[in-house]
């Protein structure tokens, strides 16, 4: 009985459409950058966007998170047209490295905490519960010792973990990563991808990642792109290729990640 209930709720949850692109085009100064892209991302998919510079990957990503408006076509997030979408706290976003000035006076803790400052939090004070979430995220990424340091003082890999902690603090359903490993040494990159893969396999998170790293994408998402749109290639690992996700609680999932990192499998 209980099993059946769980299965039912799973089939309800696990086939939600997270991102839908319908005939999306974008032109910059009348020059088409993206032409009639149709694509959809289902819950717990892992999608890798690959393409040379100027292929429009970043443009596509920026449209999906609402930073750019498509010239034509429509985008839906979690089933809602992007214009009406308000549940921004469902999305965790890891920006390109070096998107900030290394001298910027902000501690790691302040940066991680800022992941909570979404539209839904306007006019609300930071609560005790928020601080606890922040400490948990720091803890899970093993950067609690660095929490009081200025973000610019951290190494590339440590900064990446800080930004991942910021993205995870809201327990996001969709994690968007924009070239997360550019400018990071290969060993640290490997650890970072291990972390990402672990999260994908054990937790109910959908991934959308722009990357240059063909090797990682191919080894995890397969040799063949699922779809091509112009010069952008979409590599996908579908949720039905994965084992069932049981764990959805952020605290647990983050602790588990930390343990697996401490066991020495991952050298992040």
């Amino acid at each position: 009985m209980l099993q059946k209930l769980q299965q039912d709720s799973k089939s309800l949850v696990c086939h939600r459409s997270i991102i839908e692109l319908e005939n999306v085009s974008f032109a910059y100064k009348q020059k088409p950058v993206i032409n009639h892209v149709n694509f959809s991302v289902q819950e717990r998919d892992f999608v890798g966007l690959i393409g040379s510079n100027g292929a429009g990957k970043t443009t596509l990503l920026r449209m999906i998170v609402g930073l750019l408006e498509p010239t034509s076509g429509s985008i839906k997030l979690f089933g809602e047209p992007i214009e009406q979408f308000r549940s921004w706290n469902l999305i965790g976003y890891v920006p390109q490295k070096n998107s900030f000035n290394p001298l910027f006076p902000a501690t790691v803790r302040e940066v991680v905490m800022s992941g909570l400052f979404s539209r839904n939090k306007l006019f609300r004070r930071v609560t005790k519960a928020d601080s606890i979430k922040c400490e948990e995220a720091l803890h899970a990424m093993k950067i609690e010792d660095l929490a009081g340091k200025r973000i610019g003082e951290l190494s590339g890999g440590q900064q990446q973990r800080a930004f991942l902690a910021r993205a995870l603090i809201n327990n996001p359903a969709l994690l968007i990563l924009d070239e997360p490993t550019v400018g990071i040494d290969s060993e640290t990159q490997e650890g970072f991808f291990h972390l990402i893969k672990h999260m994908h396999q054990h937790h109910n998170i959908t991934f959308l990642m722009v990357s240059h790293d063909m090797e990682m994408i191919r080894s995890y998402l397969g040799e063949q792109p699922k779809q091509e749109a112009g010069k952008i290639k979409f590599y996908v690992k579908h949720s039905h290729d994965l084992e069932d996700c049981v764990e959805t609680n952020l605290t647990h999932s983050l602790r588990e990640l930390r343990h697996s990192m401490e066991r020495g499998k991952v050298g992040v």
Partner: peptide
């Protein structure tokens, strides 16, 4: 004072602020 946390996020990372749905 009312928007200190939003102004911080906007100043630190404008894209992340926009992705968080901040105006």
């Amino acid at each position: 004072g009312l928007h200190a946390k939003e102004l911080f996020l906007l100043t630190f990372d404008e894209d992340a602020a926009a992705v968080s749905g901040l105006p």
